[in-house]
Amino acid sequence: MTLDWPTLLPLIFAGLMGVAILVYVVLDGFDLGIGILFAASDAHEKDTMIAAIGPFWDANETWLVLAVGLLLVAFPVAHGVILTALYIPVFVLLVGLILRGVAFDFRAKVPVHRKKRWDALFCIGSLAASLSQGYMLGVYVLGLETGLPAIGFGLLVALCLAASYAAMGAAWLIYKTEGDLQRKAVRFLRSALVFTAVGMVAVSLATPFASPRIFEKWFTWPEIALLAPLPIVTGAAFLGLWLLTFRMPAPGDRHAITPFLTLAAIFALGFAGLAYSFYPFVVPDRLTIWEAAAATESLAIILAGTAVVLPVMIGASFYVYRVFSGKAGDLSYD
């Protein structure tokens, strides 16, 4: 591999896209998860849960636009292949995101007797968006297969991803709330963790067995030894988090953010495993990142802008999270 721009730029953009997807999954994961948890909460809890995500969800969702945007602009051919293959699940995702996005705003502005209706739609939309993302992950992992087994596997991953988003949502609530709701969130987290673990194991096993090439990459010496820490650390993180839930909420609200950070780390580890499996393909076993990449001169001009804007925006995001740090109260326009 020669290190010139035509080689490096697609690599850089694959990396950026990976980061954008991961950040999206972690950030929108918690607000989608809170939408799912709406199903098991009362009217007052719902208001507090909304307040816990209110100032953030717009920016969180923007990471999805960035991730899909990067796929679109940096790998235009892959964008077309992947999205036409996933036409219906993408549609479900979009309808879900539309429903929950507008429900978030409508619920507070419609006459009060109609509020319940929008709460229900917020929950349904969040659930539909999460399920469809999981389904797409499952089908993608199997190389965009369309057979019945692929659909079944897609559905399994769909359930597990929705559960892991619910876990993220619960972890965020532990951080942002107190009292009864916080204790409830701890119980939510414990149940959702089980499904999260099942999903991760399923994807980890399916990926190598669906593709001999990926099997090669993992189960040969010395790779198997070098890669062993990945599943081991992930497993340890799961176990640690599981045990922690029995000691929460801790006196003085210590470790309130630990579950969220641990889950984010678990997501990152799982994502790293997937990235290693699929590299250098952007469409599994069909298109490599270099075959799918846009022209070098186009990538260069995007990179120039990205290098300036992204760090500033990440800094600004941290500022916003700091401004709205602390326990969530009632959300208001002031």
């Binding site: 960035l66 235009p76 804007v309």
Partner: peptide
């Protein structure tokens, strides 16, 4: 895509993020 891509990318990067981040 080589032309539409960067224009869309700049829209997302500069504008959309600016809006979404400070909207909160």
């Amino acid at each position: 895509g080589n032309i539409a891509g960067p224009l869309l990318a700049y829209e997302v990067l500069t504008a959309f993020f600016l809006e979404a981040v400070f909207l909160g």
